[in-house]
């Protein structure tokens, strides 16, 4: 179970840990929690899988990874899980999701994200991925990102009365 204090804590931890010797004590002060209480809650939220990961969130673009490709495939429903799990094991694949196809205008159901330092490298990696995962015959498209209009961490706007219904 996740309570109202957990939500406040998640919102705070999402913004980032302060760079001080006792960051959880610091966070606790703002929420009227002891350092120990904060640590217990964070450990539990991680164990529950609510916090998917806790660590350094790198800025790919600043590190020279300016080629960001979303690759979409039209995969047979009977194979999608197996292929999805295979695709996700390649180190250059950042995300791998199944989403619903939308008829002929958008027939794709498997999505993966590849970050690379340039388009050529990304396309090479994609070829390797297609060969390795049996995707050469699948209909696919590569969508490189161009302008970024908005990007922010998923800070959910939860008010206390909404929070009670969740999870």
């Amino acid at each position: 179970m996740i309570d109202a204090i957990d939500w406040q804590l998640l919102a705070r931890v999402q913004q980032g840990l302060p760079l001080v010797s006792r960051p959880y004590a610091d966070i606790g002060k703002g929420l009227n929690l002891s350092e120990n209480e904060v640590l217990k809650r964070v450990a539990r939220l991680k164990q529950q899988g609510v916090i998917k990961r806790l660590g350094v969130v790198v800025n790919h673009r600043r590190l020279g990874y300016t080629a960001n490709a979303m690759v979409v495939f039209d995969v047979a429903a009977s194979l999608i899980e197996q292929i999805g799990e295979h695709v996700s094991q390649f180190s250059f694949v950042n995300l791998c999701y199944q989403r619903p196809a939308q008829g002929e205008q958008w027939p794709y159901n498997l999505y993966c994200m590849i970050h690379g330092k340039n388009k050529e490298k990304v396309l090479q990696q994609l070829e390797y991925l297609k060969q390795s995962c049996g995707l050469l015959q699948c209909k696919s498209e590569v969508l490189f990102s161009k302008q970024c209009f908005k990007q922010r961490g998923a800070l959910y706007q939860m008010s206390p009365d909404q929070e009670k219904e969740k999870v």
């Binding site: 998640l10 931890v13 999402q14 913004q15 980032g16 840990l17 760079l19 939220l45 899988g49 609510v50 916090i51 998917k52 990961r53 806790l54 660590g55 350094v56 969130v57 790198v58 800025n59 600043r62 590190l63 961490g153 998923a154 959910y156």
Partner: peptide
């Protein structure tokens, strides 16, 4: 220098 966005959590 913006090599990292933050040190924090990513929520499922």
């Amino acid at each position: 220098q913006q090599f990292i966005a933050r040190i924090g959590s990513v929520i499922a």
